[in-house]
Design a protein around this nucleic acid. Structure first.
Lengths: 344, 344
DNA sequence: ACCACGCGAGAAAGCGTTTTCTCAGTTCTC
DNA sequence: GAGAACTGAGAAAACGCTTTCTCGCGTGGT
């Protein structure tokens, strides 16, 4: 009977007809506007319930100028770090009635700015994780993305909070831990060449080297995933280092796996550390010593910062800096007598 | 100057004014409608470029009746299985210019149907993962969710493709593998009580028991995460079983971790298997024998099915059934002489 | 030279809401 | 008892776009 109007889905007009009132009144009732007669309101609600009317969010968004949706741009959804950020963000946002639209750039940083722009236009705000984007490009697009929260990047633009993890401090803490265990030859299995967080680590290790002239720190090329770590076994062994700082937990796990295949004992022969403290880190064998980052909390904070921006509240604490906590587990131990350079 | 109209953002009207044409013409140009004079088109494009005009997707969506967005409802974003589905879905959808909106129900199945409805209304289609929802509830909401693709659930409603993994077959394959290794006492560390995929496994194990009267299969209560497995150590040991089928890889990893803490050797003392073949499964120590599910591919397929529905194409292959592949790794081995029931 | 026809672009009508504006009907005040 | 203040609900505008409708103008045919 009084089913659908033209479009197929039932809309505010159908309810209005059924209740014998105008669109406007239905809208008022649905939005809890109390300037409407209780009897009429009841009639409208009854009609709405009977027709199972649900307001069309697109029409609503257009009229209200907001979507109740935020976007997040990540370089790789397969990376546990971004998964955790997404999770924290999504949960926190959901609590305030916001949804999350995801945009995975699949590591093609050239796409990132377009993706970010598109996502932003569909949403009320954006969280941007773009570790590989150049500074120039970042500065270029940032103004058009507001309200925006950056993860592990900073910008000169105003009103753009940055949530950054102090990878520099973290990596120095780990290096210090290894040195304390008697290691005098460390190796850093670096991350992706142009990653911002990798740069932070490299710089910090330079500082560390300067402060510890007695310890040797070899830099090795790497990446950010499992396979990188696995493939780096030869290079690591060739370096002769006994304490290895992997770029992150994934790389460390790959490396450990490779070392096991070579029959080496961790930490007996060689100590391995990761970074991030992804959920699996405590279940590896041996459990991984790492720099723990409260990454889910970071996603949550990202939402709080973004929410403040969206609501145009005075953002009392713009941005935030997270100190990694050294999490000592079983993958690090006292150094053996320094090995000479081993081959194969 | 000719910056913004009222709203703050620049819109189609601003471009129209700048190019000295009507809104309609700008729209035509932006949509590649060729019925417009090349000179004018060029002028419009120039104006658009100069103003950095980008069409407002909300207005567009309202006019076109589509959002170029799909939704996915998952019970737990922390679960690698759903992360993988999301990843596959997101990547496949992105290739066709669609974005993904996520709705995490955080295991509160009472919220799932509301969440699903909300998500659906904002999107052109929905992928629903709701393992715990009752059949009745599912049947109730399914009609209002079309276009819809179900993961690991089926429905009587028409035009609702289901992508289901044959957990039953998978679990029987694993059990068979263990029996072949000489295990005569197996234990199944079950998943969440009302999960659809858990029911499939339980039923299959009954079948298996009937076909193998000589092997003992103990059922143990469990869950779906790491901690569940870890906490189940005592129960597993008490059962006396030598071949353990964990609900999934996460549970298996937790269990292995617990067994290691007890000083037990895997697979020397006890064989452990998982399910899913999450990325980490091959890097555990020992590497985990599991039922491999091409889970990312499943996400991808979900998109293809959904796309067919959205485009109203005749869906040649509605739904699909995935056979897990037995992936034998190092966590399973020959049975020791049957242990008598051990305590603590 | 005139008419029909086609082409290109502006005017206007949607899309489904919210919200302002407006006005009829009451109630209150002096 | 008449005008003012108020209340509640409908009419209409707005949100930003796409698309149909319409119409002026130029072209080709006879």
């Amino acid at each position: 009977m009084a089913r659908k109007s033209a479009s197929g889905r039932i809309g505010i007009a159908d309810v209005a007809v059924k209740a014998g009132v105008s669109h406007a009144t239905v809208s008022r009732v649905m939005n809890g506007n109390f300037t409407v007669d209780p009897d009429i309101a009841a009639r409208v609600r009854a009609a709405a319930a009977e027709l199972k009317y649900q307001p069309n969010p697109v029409g609503r968004s257009l009229a209200l100028g907001k979507t109740d949706t935020i976007g997040i741009v990540v370089p790789d959804l397969a990376n546990p770090t971004f998964q955790a950020i997404l999770r924290g963000l999504s949960r926190a946002a959901a609590q305030d009635g916001y949804r999350v639209l995801i945009a995975d750039s699949f590591e093609v940083s050239s796409e990132e700015s377009i993706l970010a722009g598109e996502a932003r236009r569909r949403c009320d705000g954006l969280v941007l994780c773009a570790p590989r984007m150049t500074d120039a490009e970042l500065e270029e697009i940032v103004p058009s993305l507001h309200p925006l929260v950056l993860i592990n990047r900073t910008t000169a633009a105003p009103d753009v909070p940055s949530l950054v993890v102090d990878y520099g401090q973290g990596v120095q803490d780990i290096a210090g831990h290894l040195v304390q265990l008697g290691h005098t030859h460390l190796a850093f299995l670096a991350g992706p060449p142009h990653s911002a967080s990798n740069d932070m680590r490299l710089k910090a290790l330079e500082t560390f080297k300067a402060a510890h002239p007695d310890v040797d720190v070899t830099m090795l090329e790497g990446g950010s995933d499992f396979d990188t770590g696995h493939e780096a076994v030869d290079a690591v062994l060739a370096s002769g280092a006994t304490g290895i700082l992997a770029f992150n937990d994934l790389v460390a796990m790959g490396l450990m796996s490779g070392l096991h295949e070579r029959g080496l004992d961790i930490p007996g022969d060689i100590s391995v550390t990761g970074f991030d403290d992804i959920p699996f880190a405590k279940y590896t064998t041996p459990a991984l010593t790492t720099g723990a980052v409260p990454i889910t909390e970071l996603g949550e904070q990202a939402w709080h910062q973004l929410r403040a921006l969206i609501r145009k509240e005075g953002n009392e604490t713009p941005g935030g800096r997270y100190q990694p906590r050294l999490e000592v587990r079983a993958s690090t131990g006292p150094a053996k007598a320094p090995r000479s350079t081993v081959h194969g």
